[in-house]
């Protein structure tokens, strides 16, 4: 007689398999980045060769720098504009702005990439380059910031603003002393989200990039398509290591972060 396993057990097994599905590919990348063989096939021996090669790869370092500049600029712009949009959408009954801000978030990226490509070339006569990428990234990040800021505002008690007004605060005072501190976490969150979206974005960058300045995702794409060497593993591993470090820092930064995902 086979005993039917407890349902919780089934759930556990299924979940562990899903976790394995999520993590095994990443582990493999890391392992092969130390492999002394050009082919990502079998383990030959330990080497740091691919990391050294990466450090000597000027294009790659330049690409990393360009991507950072783009991500910082785009997230700054998107956070400013997105926060305004979030505030405006929450406070006033606007019809057009919500549609404009939220649609780019919901559309397949390729559509935004294509339309911006046509726009930059035909209307602005802008030579594609860093500026066009920054604008493109800002366009789709505004929506994300606005969503986060609005969600934060929705969760707040309106009476606090009324109280401020009753006490004779000007709109600017209300904003500066009450609204801004209250939504600051959402603004920071939006900025970070924009930053990560921008640095990771491949599709829109692919369409709006110029030639000449290497950009990180494009550089990785070319490496994958043209010459697959474990250098790709090395850069991937470094990127992952970076995030892992950040997680540890983030935990230190605020020990309560694992306590609860409050809204």
């Amino acid at each position: 007689m086979i005993k039917i396993p407890h349902r919780q057990t089934v759930l556990w097994i299924a979940s562990i398999l899903v976790y394995a599905f999520l993590y095994i590919p990443l582990i493999i990348i890391v392992v092969f980045s130390f492999n002394d063989s050009k082919l990502n096939a079998e383990w030959v021996g330990f080497t740091l060769h691919w990391y050294k090669a990466l450090l000597n790869n000027h294009e790659m370092l330049l690409a990393a720098r360009n991507s950072l500049i783009i991500a910082i600029s785009a997230s700054f712009l998107a956070t400013t504009l997105g926060t305004m949009a979030g505030l405006a959408i929450h406070r006033y009954k606007l019809k057009v702005l919500p549609i404009l801000a939220f649609t780019p978030v919901a559309m397949p990226e390729i559509l935004l990439g294509v339309s911006l490509l046509l726009f930059f070339l035909q209307v602005l006569n802008l030579t594609l380059g860093m500026l066009s990428i920054i604008i493109a990234h800002t366009t789709f990040c505004i929506g994300f910031v606005a969503i986060i800021v609005r969600a934060r505002l929705q969760g707040m008690d309106e009476s606090i603003f009324e109280a401020a007004r009753d006490l004779g605060a000007t709109p600017w005072q209300t904003f500066h002393q009450i609204t801004l501190p209250l939504i600051r976490p959402a603004i920071i969150a939006g900025a970070l989200m924009s930053f990560t979206l921008s640095i990771d974005d491949f599709v829109i960058t692919f369409f709006t990039k110029g030639v000449g300045e290497p950009i990180l995702p494009i550089q990785i794409y070319t490496m994958i398509k043209v010459a697959v060497t474990p250098e790709v593993n090395a850069i991937s591993t470094l990127l992952m290591l970076l995030t892992l470090t950040l997680i540890i820092i983030a935990t230190r930064f605020d020990t309560s972060m694992l306590r609860g995902e409050s809204k």
């Binding site: 986060i148 970070l192 990560t196 950040l246 930064f253 605020d254």
Partner: peptide, 9 residues
């Protein structure tokens, strides 16, 4: 979000 914050820094 907090992860991303640390990432940014």
């Amino acid at each position: 979000v907090r992860l991303s914050l640390a990432l940014l820094i």
